[in-house]
Design a protein around this nucleic acid. Structure first.
Lengths: 207, 207
DNA sequence: ACAAGATGGTGAACGACGTTTACTATGTGT
DNA sequence: ACACATAGTAAACGTCGTTCACCATCTTGT
């Protein structure tokens, strides 16, 4: 069963070329442009050969998704690393990193979070649980530190997540240019910053 | 050029059958199940016949989208109609109606708001501008009434919209069951209600 | 060293898809 | 009655995901 390193790298090499071809096609032209034949051609291989490495197209996509989640988690962790535990800046940096990842890798982000017909992805099945534990941990720390008012950490986490997620998905789906004139730009990041104190201070007028 | 009512209703009848077939296929099986041949079969007609009524599949989908936006706007208007102008209940009802529409017509909602590869929909091109003027109007009234603190109506509208939109999209994409134990259910509507005072009072502890 | 087998590739094919084409009924307007 | 637009059909084209039969090329047991 032991393979020589030569054989192993040979197998690995085409598989890597397939994955890289699929990733770049996906990123540039969306899922639509990522056909098996196109992937094969870019990888220098027949479409049928891909089936020696992945059971079907979905398995190939799943592999890309898993890789994307790892990069996603990495981006989140890097963003919060230098910031003080329990600070609101840490939570804000998490949101900014989320927006940055979605903005810089829109097609990958869509694959991560576009709802499929019928079956939702179980959070626990995702690599790194979709990054949720990081958010939750930051929420717990912020509550403990008194940065954020006392409350259920899951509820606050989902509140923050859905807000950031909504900004991204809304601006990915719709172009508001010309319909809304706002001080800042109409980007997720700009809206995120402009509404930061709405999140902190709430909508109700202070008494 | 004048058609007798007989001819007109004949033309209209198959067209209606086509649209209805497409709508129900879309709602039940997602865009994937809504193939031209399937639509044709359900409408009692050949796939090629559809092209007498719609230029291509995208035009058929666009027609469904336009209809869905009309229903969507109607649902929003009905929700706020009985509530006092300028009240926070009015804004909350708008959010609830948004969630209800998305929950009850998930496939239609996805078609309305799933980001397409490359081209975003211009808001002004959507029927009823995607319902945004209704939200904005309620925001303006709430600000004028003092229900909501003073601020840019567009910014506050987008803040509220993205929050609601994020809840829907997040829970459509991911299944949190088993990973999060919360007091209420894990539905958009329940999370919306449970975070209502977070929106009003903000995350920062009151001094 | 050599047969046996696993591994990773090929080209051809299948069925389903969106779409086009040529053709054909069936009213309708003059 | 004749010309014509309308609304349908069957068949085909190219692309898609996928499978199949086949073929090199390594690895391994004796």
């Amino acid at each position: 069963m032991t393979l020589t390193s030569g054989a192993e790298t040979s197998r690995t090499r085409t598989e890597l070329r397939i994955v890289e071809a699929a990733r770049s096609l996906l990123a540039s032209g969306g899922a639509e442009a990522c056909s098996m034949r196109a992937v094969g051609e870019r990888a220098g291989v027949t479409a049928a050969a891909i089936y020696r490495h992945f059971r079907d197209k979905q398995a190939l996509i799943d592999h890309l998704v898993a890789r994307a989640y790892e990069n996603f988690e990495l981006a989140l962790l890097r963003a919060i690393a230098p910031l003080p535990v329990g600070s609101f800046e840490r939570l804000a940096a998490l949101g900014e990193a989320y927006l940055a990842f979605a903005t810089e890798n829109p097609e990958e982000f869509k694959i991560l979070f576009t709802p499929l017909p019928g079956k939702r992805k179980r959070l626990r099945d995702l690599p790194a649980d979709g990054g949720y534990p990081i958010l939750r941990q930051c929420a717990v720390e912020a509550i403990r530190e008194g940065t954020v008012r006392d409350g259920d950490a899951d509820l606050i986490s989902l509140f923050l997540w859905s807000r950031v997620h909504g900004l991204v998905m809304l601006l990915m789906a719709c172009d508001f240019e010309g319909d809304i004139d706002l001080a800042g730009e109409l980007t997720p990041a700009s809206l995120f910053r402009q509404t930061r104190d709405l999140v902190l201070e709430g909508l109700a007028p202070r008494d």
